[in-house]
Amino acid sequence: MKKTQNTLLIRYRNLKGWVLSSQVVVAVLLTMVYPIVFSLILSFTDLKLSLGNIKFIGWSNYIWIFGRDSGFFQALLVSMGFSAVSTLLQTVLGFLIAVMLYFMSGKLQSFFKTAIYLPVVLPSAVVSAMWIMMYAGDEFGLLNIIFGLTNPPFQWLGTVSRSFIAVVTANTWRYLGITMVIYFVNMNAVSKDVIDGAKVDGANKFVIMMRIIFPLTWSATTMNIIMSMIGGIKSFDLFYLFQTNANLTYELTPVSVLIFRAGLGNAQVANIRLALSVTMSLTLAFILMIITLATNKLMSKKGDE
């Protein structure tokens, strides 16, 4: 193997290596192996938050989840719908903004890039607070002030569909920078000769964008779609904070929030069955894994053609 060629003269290499990375070993065991294995075991028990006696109850938790009154499927639908719309928006807008940046240059380019990426680094508590103030349904709601809708104040979170659009908008505002930067980095890796050649041949910017840049940054599209999709399905912060601080309708409860509310998020109810929360977590992790693998396979095939 190629490793042996590069080997340096280090005495007791294996021992020293493991000692140096012992923290990683402990971390992997404690924060990865233990939770996964323990979750698997717990998912077959009736563990309650009150931590009384634990019984093994077979597949009951799984059967309950896939039954009607668990709300799991409704929540999964919310997560997936949210994920699909957000992914579409982020990918299309991210691409367009990256192209615009690409055709600019110098200081302005880096200013816009830095500005549009800024929300990505903000704490989610701040992002949700800002948008709750934007959507506030009284005469101090920012959007109501801007659009002059103070009399009577418009209820931006008044219906389910409005609330859905509201959360998607806030989420897109927050994460657009990531898709944009990934596209931007990939665009700059496209050889300038190709684009200059097209320009000489008389191609305009739109043609260059659609026929050259878009196909040549396909790997960025793949990465963006996978990332936004997974991020969307796992999405927790905004939904949860909107529900607790802005009365976002409970019809818009995504899986991650359902999992939390079925477990510690509802700590007042001591007889709540923690095992159900764990089982849903595992199921969600499994679904995510399948989706990632499937998307990766689908998109890479298309890229080969």
Binding site: V28, T31, M32, Y34, P35, I36, F38, S39, L42, L51, K234, F236, S256, I259, F260, G263, L264, L274, S277, V278, S281, L284, A285, L288, M289
Partner: peptide, 16 residues
């Protein structure tokens, strides 16, 4: 590890 988030493993960690 990128695949796992705190929200997925929080119950076992809480119990520990």
């Amino acid at each position: 590890t990128m695949f796992f988030t705190g929200e997925m493993t929080y119950v076992p960690m809480y119990l520990l």
